[in-house]
């Protein structure tokens, strides 16, 4: 058995990596935290999910505070979509905390995680192949809620006005994002970012920054359920939250200067590896 200090250090380092990736891509980091805690440290998946949700809040607050200063947050769109994500987050957390319990529930959660992670891989892969954001058709809902905006100038790139479209589809995907967040302890950014970029026409930098802001409230709706239901282990949550915060500081700096292509590829490989291991774990082939 590893000494306490080494365990805490290992969990801290895992969380730093999750914070870097999560803040750079607006994903929250739960896709790394949950399989990391389950596969590397043998934590029960329910507790890993609860811990991860708290760390998602840390990622969100840490990165959104920086993006706010750079004017990259699309506040109206964030507040608009949050209504759908928090409802999803609450429903998902209730399902995990009270329905998907016991050995069967654990297996279901592991497989669900694998399915969601696989879909994340698909979305990331599609983003890698896709070029710029497509021009959106006029949407009366976007007009009504004043969702059209301007991406601020960034170095040599001038500011750019853009039109938001397909609002209903964006709301639906936001609910799915919230549901996956509460259910699996992830930020839900893997659905929110593509919903904003590919579906609604928001530029990538603004979408990932706005997703970073939104995932905090989404995760809070689930985290409050787990916290008050007694599913949060504070001694695991502490190194995870502090590590995530530290990683977030690095991730937001890199977000400003680097192309995220290489990181997306690394993230993709890591997710696929986690999917394979989670499936094997669910089948009882491996154990942490």
């Amino acid at each position: 058995m590893l000494p306490l200090v080494l365990l805490l250090l290992g969990i801290f380092l895992l969380a730093v990596g999750a914070g870097v990736l999560g803040s750079m891509l607006g994903l929250g980091g739960g896709m790394v935290i949950v399989p990391g805690l389950v596969l590397l440290f043998g934590v029960d998946v329910h507790w890993a999910i609860a811990t991860s949700l708290v760390s998602v809040i840390a990622t969100s607050a840490g990165s959104a505070s920086r993006y706010a200063r750079k004017g990259l947050l699309h506040l109206r769109l964030g507040f608009f979509l949050e209504v759908a994500t928090v409802v999803g987050g609450l429903v998902g957390a209730v399902l995990t905390a009270a329905v998907l319990i016991g050995p069967v529930g654990t297996e279901v959660l592991l497989f669900l995680f694998a399915v969601v992670a696989s879909s994340a891989s698909f979305l990331l892969l599609r983003d890698l192949r896709r070029g710029g954001v497509a021009e959106q058709p006029r949407d009366p809902l976007a007009d009504r809620w004043r969702l059209h905006a301007t991406l601020p100038a960034d170095g040599p790139s001038p500011s750019r006005a853009f039109r938001v479209g397909h609002v209903r589809e964006g709301l639906s995907l936001s609910f799915v994002a919230g549901l996956s967040s509460g259910l699996l302890g992830i930020g839900g950014g893997l659905y929110k970012v593509p919903a904003m970029t590919a579906v609604m026409g928001v530029p990538m930098k603004m979408a990932s920054a706005t997703s970073s802001l939104m995932i905090g409230v989404t995760a809070a709706s689930g985290a409050l359920v787990f916290l008050l239901h007694g599913e949060v282990a504070p001694l695991i949550t502490a190194p995870v939250a502090v590590g995530t915060l530290a990683g977030t500081q690095v991730g937001t700096h890199v977000h400003a200067v680097a192309s995220s292509r290489a990181l997306r590829i690394i993230f993709l490989v890591a997710i696929l590896a986690a999917v394979a291991l989670m499936i094997l774990r669910g089948l009882g082939v491996t154990s942490a």
């Binding site: 058995m1 590893l2 000494p3 306490l4 200090v5 365990l7 805490l8 440290f41 043998g42 934590v43 507790w47 787990f226 916290l227 008050l228 239901h229 007694g230 599913e231 949060v232 282990a233 504070p234 001694l235 695991i236």
Partner: peptide
């Protein structure tokens, strides 16, 4: 916690829950 009450391994980490 590390200084005053070092537990042992993962069981120690999991022993304290939120309620």
């Amino acid at each position: 916690i590390v200084v005053l009450a070092p537990g042992t391994g993962m069981d120690g980490l999991l022993s304290a829950r939120s309620r």
